[in-house]
């Protein structure tokens, strides 16, 4: 058996070699992921229901939830250095019908009002001084569809670990397309809303929905 390798005792040389091989293999995987998904300043992610492009320094994750009568497919996108979040969700036909029936909802607006109420109630449980103020509503074009939207701000809605209060700004977009519920939610805390809003818009412009 060899006494030394690269002038080192054989076990030490093997130890260093394994570390180098593992790290190089890891770098090769990262590089192949990069080349497979990079699209200019964005990464492309394909999920079962969305084709989306998000900024290269943002993080995206997807999930599928089994509901009472069907499924809900969700994608989350967020920057790591700001408190801003984007959620895209599609509820299949059966789940949409069941959800609307269960909560006495009739259209996209009633869905948004119901969800906004739920959000506000949950914030009030933690902070009784939070105040809901509507900013606007109407229709907006996103992901190739015309969606109803409501934007609102919850004043002092977010409290950080140090007890400091921040305003929490939300934009809720909803549409029922072919019986399936499409929801896009964008929310950001404090001053992080304004700088991330143009990025949110560019993400929406590039996003495509894949219907089941």
């Amino acid at each position: 058996m060899r006494e030394k390798l690269f002038g080192l005792r054989l076990p030490l040389a093997i130890f260093i070699l394994i570390i180098l091989i593992l790290n190089m293999a890891s770098a090769a995987i990262f590089y192949s992921v990069f080349t497979a998904h990079v699209y200019g300043e964005y990464f492309n992610m394909e999920t079962s229901h969305f084709s989306l492009y998000f900024p290269r320094n943002w993080i995206a994750a997807s999930g599928r939830y089994e509901l009472d009568y069907g499924t809900r497919n969700i994608v989350w996108i967020a920057p790591i250095d700001k408190l801003a979040f984007i959620t895209l969700a599609i509820m299949d036909k059966k789940s949409t019908e069941s959800y609307m029936e269960k909560n006495n909802l009739t259209d996209a607006y009633s869905i948004m009002k119901y969800e906004i109420g739920r959000i506000y109630d949950s914030i009030l449980k933690r902070n009784k001084n939070a105040t809901l103020r509507f900013i606007g509503n109407g229709t907006i074009k996103a992901a190739g569809y015309s969606l109803n939207y409501i934007s609102f701000i919850i004043i002092n809605g977010y409290i950080d670990n140090e007890g400091k209060h921040y305003n929490w700004t939300w934009m809720f977009m909803t549409s029922i397309i072919n019986g399936e519920l499409l929801q896009i939610i964008y929310h950001a805390i404090g001053d992080d809303y304004k700088p991330t809003y143009p990025i949110f818009q560019s993400i929406l412009n590039r996003t495509k929905v894949k219907w089941g």
Binding site: I29, F30, S32, V33, F34, H37, F43, M45, F54, P55, R56, N57, W58, I59, A60, A61, I80
Partner: peptide, 10 residues
């Protein structure tokens, strides 16, 4: 390229 961590292969 922090977004690379979003993909399964990563």
């Amino acid at each position: 390229v922090l977004g690379l961590l979003s993909f399964d292969a990563s």
